Computed example of a mutant assay.
Amino acid sequence: MAVDRELRAQRLQAVRQRLLDGANGLLEQGAWPEVTIEQIAASAGVSRTVFYQHFADRQELLLTLFGGIAADLTHVADDWMVMGGADPSAEHGRSLRQLVGVFQRHGRLLQAVRDAAVSDPEVAAAWERLSTGIVEETTVAIERDVAQGHTRVDDPAEMSRALTAMMENHLLRSFGRAPFPDPDAVAATLTTVWVRTLYDGR
């Protein structure tokens, strides 16, 4: 019956979500290489066999978690990247505070993806797609600000790569593993670097 199939699908989805939530919780306690399938299954209250009914391996689960927040990371800087208002410094500050919030909530997961990317080509490709997309969007935003007279940058693409790499590394160092710094201080520091680099010298 259709009702039975729907209930079964709901139960399967609930188990899958428990596995994802359990893995996320374990990442708050230790680094990804230390997290085992047995631990993930136990945290969800299921067996190892049930784990494999939902995910082929740990990396597939990790990529699923990563996919869940990739959109947040792509659009978190829209205040600056998309809006393009009269005060890019203020817009950039708001975007950076939002970005720090994402890393504060998900930094351990992002660190796990970065760590796994070293040895797993599929994870590396997913991380590279996200990083490349952010660099490209940042380049477009810098080019817009150059055209509008807000900044003077000779090579927007290279500036984007440099500032984005600095920001990524700083945020992972800050929120990838405990102890964590004051998020307001991190946001203020990043804002100072970006604003002074792009706008103070125009």
Rank of each mutant, 00 (worst) to 15 (best):
G67T: 06
R16E: 08
D21Q: 13
T164Y: 10
T191L: 05
E38G: 11
Q29R: 13
W32K: 09
V76C: 06
D72Y: 10
T191C: 06
A31L: 08
R108F: 01
V76H: 08
A71T: 14
H75R: 14
E6T: 14
A77K: 11
A9F: 00
A178Y: 00
R152Q: 12
V123D: 04
L110F: 05
V140P: 05
R196K: 05
D79M: 08
N169Q: 15
R173E: 11
T151V: 09
S174D: 09
R11K: 12
A31M: 02
L130P: 03
A41S: 06
Q98T: 09
Q53I: 00
D87L: 05
D57N: 15
V195R: 14
I37D: 04
E34G: 07
A178T: 02
A187L: 06
A41T: 07
A116C: 02
A157M: 09
Q59S: 14
G68M: 11
A14E: 15
M1R: 09
Q98P: 01
A117D: 01
V76K: 11
V146T: 07
L190N: 00
G85C: 10
T151S: 15
V100S: 02
A86V: 14
G84C: 02
G201L: 15
D154I: 03
G25Q: 13
R97H: 13
V153R: 02
R108N: 08
S95M: 13
Y199H: 11
R177T: 12
V193Y: 13
Q29E: 15
V46Q: 07
H54P: 03
A116P: 11
A126P: 10
A112V: 05
S131Y: 10
Q29N: 08
P179I: 04
R58N: 04
Y52D: 02
V186E: 06
R58Q: 11
G68S: 10
M166Q: 10
R105S: 08
E122H: 12
Q53S: 05
P33Q: 08
L171T: 00
R152S: 08
Q98C: 05
A56F: 08
A117F: 00
A70P: 01
S89A: 15
H92P: 03
Q104G: 04
P179K: 01
S47T: 14
T64G: 00
V82Q: 11
V118N: 12
N169K: 12
A141N: 04
A2D: 07
P121W: 04
L20Q: 14
R144M: 08
A14F: 09
M159D: 09
R196F: 03
R114H: 15
F51S: 04
D145H: 03
V195A: 05
A9V: 03
P121L: 05
S89I: 11
A86W: 05
V123F: 03
V118P: 01
Q53L: 13
Q53Y: 12
L163V: 04
V153I: 14
R152G: 01
Q39N: 04
R202V: 09
T164H: 10
R196L: 01
V82R: 07
L7N: 13
T36V: 03
A23H: 12
E137K: 15
L110S: 07
